[in-house]
Design a protein around this nucleic acid. Sequence first.
DNA 1: TTATTTAGTGAGTAAAATTTACTTACTTTA
DNA 2: TAAAGTAAGTAAATTTTACTCACTAAATAA
Lengths: 204, 204
Amino acid sequence: MELEQKKVCLPEKSFPPGKIKIMNALSELMREKDFHSITTADIAATAGVTEGLIYKYFKDKKDLLYQVLNGHFQTFQHYITRKIAAQTASVDKLRIIIKTSLKSYAVNRVFARILLLEVRNSSNYFESDAYDMVKIYSRTILDIISQGIDAGEIREDVDPHALRQVILGSIEHACLGEVIFGKELDIDKVSENICNIIFKGVQK
Amino acid sequence: MELEQKKVCLPEKSFPPGKIKIMNALSELMREKDFHSITTADIAATAGVTEGLIYKYFKDKKDLLYQVLNGHFQTFQHYITRKIAAQTASVDKLRIIIKTSLKSYAVNRVFARILLLEVRNSSNYFESDAYDMVKIYSRTILDIISQGIDAGEIREDVDPHALRQVILGSIEHACLGEVIFGKELDIDKVSENICNIIFKGVQK
DNA sequence: TTATTTAGTGAGTAAAATTTACTTACTTTA
DNA sequence: TAAAGTAAGTAAATTTTACTCACTAAATAA
């Protein structure tokens, strides 16, 4: 397993120990509870620091969440970029993106939870560094699609934005059941099914 | 326009006026703010009632949210069932579901907001009446797919659950930008794009 | 008429998030 | 080497917010 759940998914150095402990504490607590039912007292106790310190390093509780997400996203981005580079055909790259994303979400459920369920409802997330990472990821997919069309692999009457939507939507929806209900996901099967539908179409 | 944004989307009668005012108030406030940053004081002030009354009619703040969602969902469900009935071919039914769902979300953004962003993070939503409506909607799609396979309209090597995932994921992801950033959505175009991809496939 | 339910109030409480004033220890620099 | 500044962390006060509870007024049923 290349992609394992690490305690800290951040540029650990340069961060003071207290900050790292706080971020790890939230990450740990999110395995059991949802963000809203985790209190700053919980976080401080788990981290072994005082509540005040949280506000030294984070604007507010949500800012802490965004920074934790950002850390996870760094790991994800590095991993997926390397995987994509190993492929040449656009369609294969998309296939890898689908499979690798599903796998990342499955392996790191806290990451999936935060990304799919916890941050999207507040508007200031979309100004956070974490969301910048999403934009990069999202942009990568769009570029691959465009290249695929140019290379003649993908039909030219396919709208790239629409295809990206379908891909991202499929990935995310496939993970929801897993993230919410903790169902096990057969990644190979699910990703193959999704690719089968999107690439070949469903109509006879 | 058949589907317009009504103030109240509930069996208004039988509900005491205060309850309706409270539900409308939340619905109204959710146009600007996310659920978590709306306080019970906000709701009460907007509704013109006291905070205490909220807890007369609702178990807690979340229960209020679920009931509001449920009201919106009733309208949605009726509308979509009627639309589907007008079609015979399974593929056309799916097309209608995609288009009508997109339209419902576009017309009623608060409904979309609540459904796609606000409720999924808390586990007790999945025991709520509102979620029962989702199950019915979701089940409908699965049945149509199965019928489509039986009727020979849809390839038999397509996994029905996977196809449903792709459809639901595509719809939801297409709405996200709209719900979050308030972007206008060209429903005809977007739904046509999605159908084009899913039905015909993207590969040359 | 009197009892009883129904709609609604308003003051309060406990828990949680955030702020503030402070200590301690480590660098830098004069 | 002493002074000055800063970074890490604390402890307690403050504010916000969801939620409770004992009460009133009015309508309805007996």
